[in-house]
């Protein structure tokens, strides 16, 4: 079994455990009110004031086609050079983890269960735990997303990074 060390922020949208690389995440805070912007993609919820800055808010659930449920948080992260707030359900943990890759058949099963688009995810992991100098599987599995996936290619073509 090959063991990887990954610094990840793990969160939940509609019961699906997902992860972003810590280096892409600035901070997490409870969601605040959003002003809708006309003529944007459906998953672009609008603009919100976050710690004195105005940020675009992307609905992580709508973008990944997962039904969000319950409480909402903003994950403020770097998306193609911009600082963007992504709406999620709740943060789970953020730390340096020991993980192993999930078997592809297992990944397919997870994707099929939640009807997810495989193109949106860069990897699938399972958290490992060390006990008596041996690594054991915890059964906690999640899908890793590259933050660039939060905007569509059409939107990305309009991004000018100063």
């Amino acid at each position: 079994m090959r063991i990887y060390r990954r610094e990840l922020f793990i969160f939940d949208i509609g019961g699906v455990p997902l992860a972003l690389r810590m280096e892409d995440v600035e901070y997490i805070l409870p969601a605040s009110e959003i002003t809708s912007v006309p003529k944007t993609a459906q998953f672009v919820l609008g603009l919100a004031a976050v710690r004195g800055k105005i940020m675009s808010v992307i609905d992580g659930g709508l973008r990944l086609r997962i039904q969000r449920q319950g409480t909402s948080y903003f994950v403020v992260c770097h998306v193609r050079g911009n600082t963007t707030a992504v709406l999620i359900n709740r943060p789970l943990e953020a730390k340096n983890l020991s993980v192993k890759k999930i078997e592809s058949s297992d990944v397919e099963r997870i994707l099929a269960r939640h009807k997810l688009n495989p193109k949106m995810f860069s990897a699938a992991w399972e958290i490992l735990k060390k006990k008596d100098s041996h690594w054991s599987e915890t059964g906690r599995k999640f899908l890793e997303i590259n933050t660039d996936q939060f905007v569509s290619d059409q939107m990305a073509s309009k991004i000018i990074v100063g």
Binding site: P38, K39, T40, I54, S56, V151, A156, K158, I159
Partner: peptide, 18 residues
């Protein structure tokens, strides 16, 4: 304030005000 270019490229939108 300036906003992300995929929003400011929408005709009629200049930026955002807090």
């Amino acid at each position: 304030h300036s906003v992300d270019s995929y929003i400011s490229s929408i005709p009629g939108i200049q930026g955002g005000v807090i």
